[in-house]
C-alpha cells in the first residue's frame, strides 16, 4: 500500500503478506533469469554462423514452381544478409539459377523462405546452398 500526501507518496512499513510473497517470487524469478543468462554467457562458446538448408516442399505456382525451405543457423552468432542460391542442374549444365536474400538468420534459430523456378525441379537435380552472409 502506498499513501499519497502533498504530492509525495510514502510506502507503508506494515506491508500485507501478499506484497512480500509477490516480492519474494519476483526476486526468485529475476535471480533465476540473471543466473541463466550468466551461465549461458560463461558456458556457451562463440561459434560463427553455421547455415543449413532443408527443402520442405515443391509446389506448382502460377508461371512455375515454388520450392519452400527452412534455413537454420546452428552457430551462436547471427548472420545478416544471407544469400541462398538455388540451381537446377541437368546433364552437368546449370539450366536455371534463382537467388533469395534473408535479412537475418538468428543464432540457433531457423526461418522460412522459398525460391521460384520456371522449370520443374523434379525433372532435374536441385542444389540449394547459402552463398554468404554479413555480420549484423
Amino acid at each position: 500500500m502506498t499513501k499519497s500526501e502533498n504530492g509525495r507518496r510514502r510506502e507503508r512499513q506494515d506491508a500485507h503478506w501478499i506484497e512480500w510473497l509477490t516480492g519474494i517470487v519476483s526476486a526468485l524469478l529475476v535471480a533465476a533469469l540473471l543466473g541463466w543468462l550468466g551461465w549461458e554467457a560463461l558456458m556457451r562458446p562463440t561459434t560463427p554462423p553455421d547455415l543449413s538448408i532443408h527443402v520442405v516442399s515443391t509446389q506448382p505456382s502460377s508461371g512455375g514452381y515454388r520450392v519452400a525451405f527452412d534455413i537454420s543457423n546452428a552457430g551462436t552468432t547471427t548472420a545478416a544478409a544471407v544469400t541462398v542460391i538455388g540451381r537446377l542442374i541437368k546433364d552437368g549444365q546449370v539450366i536455371e539459377e534463382s537467388p533469395v536474400v534473408f535479412d537475418y538468420v538468428a543464432a540457433q534459430s531457423k526461418t522460412q523462405g522459398a525460391i521460384f523456378f520456371r522449370n520443374d525441379p523434379a525433372a532435374s537435380e536441385m542444389v540449394m546452398r547459402p552463398a554468404g552472409y554479413t555480420s549484423p
Partner: peptide
Amino acid sequence: MGGHELSPETPWWHAFVRFTLPGYV
C-alpha cells in the same frame, strides 16, 4: 515530484523487494 519515499526506519531493500522487483517482472 510524485516520487516515493521511505520512512527513515524502513530499510531500502523493503521497497526494492516489494515494488521494484515485481515491477521488473
